[in-house]
Design a protein around this nucleic acid. Structure first.
Length: 299
RNA sequence: GGGGGAGCGCCGGAGUUGGAGAGCCGGGCCGGUCUGUAAAAUCGGUGCCUCGUGCUGAGUGAGUUCGAAUCUCACCUCCCCCA
């Protein structure tokens, strides 16, 4: 049984489509389960802001890896990969079809492929590198990286320079090549569907979604998360800082920029099967995905 | 009706007061990178074309000048003040 993966820009309706698809699959006697691949929906206490499936929606389709990280906890792609692999393998062993759904490109690749991620580094090392970075600037650390690592990283790219510096100081060999990220060799057979739609409609959906989040209490949610000591990785959620200062328009704008980055991922993913949902509802998209499943890959 | 100020590329801002710019800053928009922080971080593009470093361009029209975004005149639009 193939894993089904559903990707697409924020506000494209991934969750709704997954639920509709699950209902169609159940009519065929399957017992599907959604596996979240969204880096923010993993947190407990950011459900509104991250657009996580609501209790009603979860009653219609069981979701895994949703809202299980404490708001003050840090999370990572590597940790996600371990958990996602375990969930997918277990579901397949039980004969239940996993529907991997979410908008984080790296997490999706990590769920479907074996990325061989480098280990996590001790927090002391991370802190030391960050102090160095703050004091000497990214270009200085960039210049100290081995040639083969430096070539692919821009001198301004603080995050990657920091990460690579950490690994080098610990004597861990980072990946020289990044081919693996786009590998066509998946851990388990999967069909990947990418939801697209015309840009105007996407923007309208994003605006409506942000408004709905605010109406549903996203600002209070963010204040609560802030008061509860939200971790750095949780605070990275789009809208977190924006809503803390009451700037809803900035959140809309950031969501649009995020959607663009997600589309960049989607265009590059091997064997992605695009479904244009412009003017269509979730149920239509679900039927289209099911029809393509029946027709076979790349049809 | 009178006085003052301002008009350029998707938007806002600054600046240039005769040797010029398809230029600066910010935003928006569009594209790219991505291996344990990824909703992060980061790079680039954004007048037109036949892509040469080519063409057009500083509200509109005329004028002065070797040369005008800059000076002059008229007109248009917007803003402020006074009636």
């Amino acid at each position: 049984m193939d894993v089904i993966a559903i990707f697409g820009p924020t506000a494209a309706g991934k969750t709704g489509v997954a639920i509709e698809l699950a209902e169609l699959l159940r009519e065929r006697g399957e017992d599907p389960v959604a596996v979240n691949c969204d880096s923010i929906q993993v947190y407990e206490g950011l459900e509104i802001l991250s657009g996580a499936a609501t209790p009603d929606e979860r009653a219609r389709l069981e979701h895994r890896l949703l809202g299980f990280v404490a708001i003050d906890g840090e999370f990572s792609a590597g940790r996600y990969a371990q958990l996602a692999h375990a969930e997918i393998d277990q579901l397949l062993a039980e004969g239940r079809r996993p529907i991997v759904v979410g908008g984080t490109g790296l997490y999706l690749r990590a769920a479907l492929a074996e990325l061989e991620m480098r280990p996590q580094v001790p927090s002391e090392v991370r802190a030391a590198v960050e102090a160095d970075l703050a004091e000497r600037g990214p270009a200085a650390l960039h210049a100290e990286l081995p040639d083969e690592l430096r070539s692919g990283v821009h001198p301004n790219d603080r995050k990657r320079i920091a990460r690579l510096t950490e690994l080098v100081r610990l004597g861990i060999a980072p990946h020289a090549s990044s081919e693996g990220l786009w590998t066509e060799n998946l851990r388990v057979p999967a069909r990947l569907f990418g939801i697209t739609l015309e840009r105007d409609e996407l923007h309208a959906r994003i605006n409506a979604r942000v408004d709905a989040m605010v109406a549903a209490g996203a600002i209070d949610e963010v204040k609560r998360a802030d008061a509860a000591g939200a971790s750095r990785t949780a605070r990275a959620a789009i809208g977190f800082e924006e809503l803390l200062r009451g700037d809803v328009e900035a959140m809309r704008s950031a969501q649009r920029a995020f959607a663009r980055r997600q589309l960049t991922w989607m265009r590059k993913m091997p064997h992605v099967e695009l479904v244009d949902r412009t003017g269509r509802d979730d149920a239509w998209v679900a039927r289209e995905i099911l029809a393509r499943l029946d027709r076979g890959p790349d049809s």
